[in-house]
Write a protein that binds this DNA or RNA. Sequence first.
DNA 1: CGCCAAATAT
DNA 2: GATATTTGGC
Length: 514
Amino acid sequence: MVCTADDLQEWKDFPKGLRVLLLDRDGHSAAEITSKLEEMEYVVCYCSDEKETLSTILNTSENFHVAILEMCKGNYDESFKLLGSSKDLPIIMISDVYCLSTMMKCIALGAVEFLLKPLSEDKLRNIWQHVLHKAFSSTPKPEVDSAASLMQLQLESEDNTGVLEDTEVLSWIQDVVWEQEQPEGSVIYQLNQGSSLQGCWESENQMNRPMETDCSDKDVRSNFVETASHDLVCEDTLQEGQPRLSGENKSGVKSGPSAAEHSIQGSDVNPSASSKARKTKVDWSPELHRKFIRAVEQLGIDRAIPSKILELMKVEGLTRHNVASHLQKYRMQRKHVMQREENLTRYSMQTNHSPPIMAYPSYPYCGISMSTVYRTWTQTNGHPANVNMRGPPDYRHWPQPGTQPWNSYAGMQADAWGCPVMLPSRAPYFSYPQQISASHNVYTANKGYGTPQISFDLQPNEELIDEIVNEAKRKPWSPLPLGLKPPSAEILVEELPKQGISTLTPQINAFNPP
DNA sequence: CGCCAAATAT
DNA sequence: GATATTTGGC
């Protein structure tokens, strides 16, 4: 590992001192980049050709945190090779040639980012993120589920065919990235003892194929996914390049579901067949949950009972009990959220009265505009809560595993997506009063039913704020009460590097249309 | 069956 | 210690 999460904890003034390997054949541009990097107090090691780079990487890869490599103009393959040279080192490719397919290929091959020259300070400033991400990625996060990511990737690809003219590249990438279709609503059982996956199956299309996984492109996959995916699906995007689960468990690391979901280790026990290995838990993957939600909505929240839901879900192997349990949790969540919203509403009613301000003020948090980062739940991509207006937009109340990279890193939460600094004790979201009041305007977005607009111009009492803040701290995955959605991975990847942007794009449909 | 709460697993 | 999921009683 180049840099582990633990290392980061001890890295006091991260990202200062970040060691960057730079390959750029153009001396002038190299000097420029170097000086910019050095201004940020990064340590730069410069190479002027492939060979040098390769040997540097191979011999001393432990010593770099991130590499910036220029595409070789005459010979892309050379560059592609470089990409494969180090699994652990986050590699940023750069080029002055804009070529989508090349970019995609690089990403597919494991590059963490592709930047176009010239490299502005802005582009360079945040390269530390890749180090963070890599570090975190090597610590598997149980909530993460990369199936969704990949599904997402595929969806995206399909969706973008208009844009991506080079379908060949596309299919190539798809091959590399993921050879199989993602099962919808696959259920995973895990063994009671040991964390190895026992089996999985899919329901909708009865193609029960084993999902063999090839170590070698595991990294490629996740990298591609995390960098290039968009938010067609509201599920997660960030996923670790955690190689395999069962084989060796580095540093006593437990296998994350994602790894599990796609790889079947030796004995793949069919849930029905398995006799000895008692299956333990159903993994409510985003897909599975979506099915659940779909069923619940179809039935209507009041009529949604386990047996009916089960029926509608059509997921083989799932039991009524499983559903009942999930339903129970679901209801509790729901209740909780509704209660909280009610509090806010009540509050707003009693204070209130200036008309809602339909604007998107920018609230720079670590240089990023809040409104850019936080999108409203109502316009969730892919499976918008408002697609089906019969019921309440339920998924917004539901934790979306893996969507938030900071999820499992209490100490680093904000850092992982916002600042390189360790979090003080304050909450990442609304530490400042002005943010609180301003955010209220967006609140209306969340309450789309019946009451078109509720707004307040005054601040709620402190207890309420505290409660919200605490809640946000404790459960970063639960939706913010203000109708805002936490940053998606896509946003993180795309927006953070451009740190400083504060332009708001109210393409975001934050308010319910009249 | 469905719901709820206790028990377990992660 | 907190959550997520399963179990078991009513």
